[in-house]
Computed example of a mutant assay.
Amino acid sequence: MKRSYIFLATQRKRHHNIMTSPVLFARNINVTLGGNPILKNVSLNMPKGSLKVLIGPSGAGKSTFLQTLNYLIPYDSGKLELHGKVVDVDNKKELYAYRQQVGMIFQDFNLFDHLNAIDNVAIALRKVKGMKKSEANIRAMAELTRVGLEEKGDLYPAELSGGQKQRVAIARALAMDPTVLLLDEPTSALDPELVGEVLSVIRDLTKAGLTMVMATHQMDFARALAHEIVFMQDGEIIEQGSPAELLREGSKTRTGDFCARLEMSIDEE
């Protein structure tokens, strides 16, 4: 399939402070799993302070790409560059340092059931950064407060709603001071009424200037806050550009067609 790219020609005024030089750059990433090509020569740059939203049908390669950006899934060929330096993924020390700077939020929270919210956030601070327990707990509580869970620190995952669990997961990632945050469908496992509380936290992080890449089907959110939408299909980037360009009425883009079908299916439910 011949790919057509739509790039951002001009930036909207509210995004004028985004730097053009990428913090993280994935170059020509190829991934094959079980003999099947999953990602095909995918490249994406992430400027400081930008929110890039990945959309596309199931099986497009969005989750695989996000996990490849964190090198949870190794790539067959390509490069990851952080602050202009190629990451040597074969060097365990360098890869370990890289992963500390690239946080990951999953669909299913990945919390420790035997730890309360404070300890779920603090454990990486103690194990990875070597903080004392008291210091780690103070930082953990600060991050829980940041995501609106200052009164839930002593509760265990079984006592939290899905939205609260996801906010604990976000607090855990933020406590590590990531340069880039990757979010893989962070609201897909939530009941509809809980989606808003998680998106509200992500909205605040966008305003604070955190660099993020997020896979989602929440198109109203993408329209309002994404600096760039990246449409993937069959392991390739088909289109990318601002929401104003790709979703403009009458634009006749693949992205616009996909979103129209997605919204139609939601209305029919």
Rank of each mutant, 00 (worst) to 15 (best):
V168K: 03
V53M: 14
G56Q: 05
V102F: 00
R203K: 15
S77W: 05
K207W: 04
D191Y: 04
M1R: 00
S188L: 02
I237M: 01
N91E: 14
F231R: 01
P186K: 02
A9D: 13
F258D: 09
K132Q: 12
E249S: 09
L72A: 02
N120T: 07
A226N: 11
S242D: 07
G209A: 14
Q100N: 10
Q101H: 13
G163H: 06
Q166K: 05
M131S: 07
D267Q: 14
S251L: 01
G61R: 00
A215Y: 01
L95G: 07
E150A: 13
T179E: 14
H83L: 15
Q240E: 11
E197M: 11
P22M: 12
N36L: 12
T216E: 03
S265C: 09
E197V: 08
A122C: 09
L66M: 09
A260N: 14
A9H: 12
R146D: 12
I29W: 00
L66P: 03
N36F: 10
L210K: 14
L262R: 11
I123M: 15
M46F: 15
K127P: 00
D76W: 07
L125Q: 13
L160C: 06
A222Y: 03
G103M: 09
I73N: 05
S265H: 14
D108F: 15
P74S: 07
Y96P: 01
G162I: 04
M212N: 14
F221T: 02
I18G: 08
Q164M: 13
V198G: 08
G130C: 07
D119L: 08
S200D: 13
H83N: 15
I55A: 03
I266S: 13
A117M: 07
G148S: 10
R3N: 09
L182V: 03
L115V: 04
P74A: 05
Q166L: 06
S161F: 06
E159H: 08
M214V: 01
V89T: 15
R146F: 08
Q218Y: 08
I229K: 08
R126N: 09
R12C: 08
V42E: 00
H227S: 12
L44P: 02
K133F: 04
Q101I: 03
Q67T: 00
A124R: 11
G163S: 06
V168E: 05
V147T: 05
V31A: 00
G130P: 07
G78Y: 06
L69H: 01
P57S: 13
R139V: 13
P37D: 10
I118F: 08
A60R: 00
T253V: 06
S43H: 01
P22V: 09
K48V: 10
L194R: 10
E135I: 11
P57F: 07
G130W: 05
K93R: 15
I105C: 10
V42H: 01
V180M: 09
N45H: 09
I105G: 05
P192E: 02
L80F: 03
K207N: 11
Q101D: 10
T68N: 02
Q240H: 11
L82M: 11
F258K: 06
F7R: 05
I266M: 15
N70I: 03
A158C: 04
L54P: 04
E249Y: 03
L39K: 02
I118M: 09
D234V: 00
F7Y: 07
G103C: 12
T10S: 14
A173Y: 04
F109I: 00
G78D: 08
G84Q: 05
K152L: 09
R14N: 15
F221W: 10
S134K: 14
G148E: 08
L115F: 12
